[in-house]
Amino acid sequence: MLRSNKGVSLVELMVVLVLMGLVLALGFGIYSQSAGTYNAGSKQSNVQQDVTVFSEFITSNLRSAVSVKVLASEPASYNYEREYIIIRSDAVVHRLQNGNEVNVLGGVNDRIDFGGSGFYPDEDGDGSNTNTLNFDIKGLIGKQSYNIKASVICLNIDSIEATDIREDAPGKVIEFQRVSDETHFSMYMFEKDKNPFLASTAVGKIDSSKALGEISISVPSETDTTGLIATFALSPGAEARVGGKVQKSGVTPNSFSSGQLIYNVVSQNTDIKIYRVTLR
């Protein structure tokens, strides 16, 4: 059988190229659809993760807070003894006591719209606030939307401070103070007015750097030390105890007849630091 030595004709070449183009176009379409499906699934997964992280963040910070206040908008000035959770147009941020801010949800690059989001407390039948805070966070990233709607019970307070804040007019800011673990004396003295047998006020020198805190204070040797009244200041929320008895600054008398007195300083989260007061 004779073979033809003729090459591929131009028509045949064009047909082959067209067929190859169709195959490539079909393959690219399938790839694009698969990639789009993957990206959508990835975004959905990220959204679900955001929902979980934010809910846990709210719960962990507010459940044990000792002060919670809902504000309609950002304050003109911030209280640097408090922290804030703020809903802005493109992000939900956590403002720390030092003024630094951390994005909890969203950010400029995510192009999220948080319209309709807010915080509001539950109310009793008489209209007063309870210690339950509701939060409704609605986010929109392009066509992808999500909604976090939950509540947290603030265990250490009786009611949440909020004025004209309700479900149909929620607040955009939470001001809160977390439970403190600080156990320090910041001031300790015997005031002359509280201890009239002293010639002048005696101010103590405080050393909190070691496990056992030390306070040394000088009083005249002839001082009657059986009922000295100390005036002192402690870490926020902490209390001082002597032999289990809670001490009141400028009120509670104690005997220093041995030349020393032991205080237990208890923080809001029940951490304890022992201080020894020594008369010099």
Rank of each mutant, 00 (worst) to 15 (best):
N100C: 09
V47A: 06
K69M: 04
E81Q: 02
R82Q: 13
D113L: 09
D113V: 05
N46W: 12
K69R: 13
D113E: 02
E74K: 14
I87S: 05
G41R: 01
S55K: 11
R63L: 10
H94T: 01
F54Y: 12
A65L: 11
L96N: 13
Y78E: 03
L96R: 04
R88F: 03
L105K: 04
V108P: 00
I86A: 02
I87M: 11
P75C: 06
S42C: 10
A65M: 03
V51Q: 15
H94E: 01
Q97T: 12
A76Y: 04
N98L: 04
R88V: 09
S42P: 07
A72T: 01
L71M: 13
G99K: 13
R82V: 01
S60W: 07
V47I: 13
E74P: 08
Q97F: 02
N100I: 06
G36S: 14
T52W: 14
Q49F: 14
E101G: 06
T59C: 12
T37D: 01
V51H: 05
G41S: 02
L105M: 10
V102G: 14
D110Q: 14
F57Y: 02
Y78D: 03
I85K: 02
E83N: 06
L105E: 09
Y80F: 14
Q49K: 05
Y78F: 15
I112T: 08
R63P: 08
V53W: 09
R88C: 02
E101R: 09
N98D: 12
Y38S: 11
F54N: 01
E83M: 03
I58F: 05
L62Q: 09
N79T: 00
I87D: 01
I86R: 07
D90Y: 05
H94A: 12
N98S: 12
N100Q: 13
L62M: 08
S60E: 08
E83Y: 00
N61K: 01
V92N: 01
S55A: 06
E101V: 15
A76T: 09
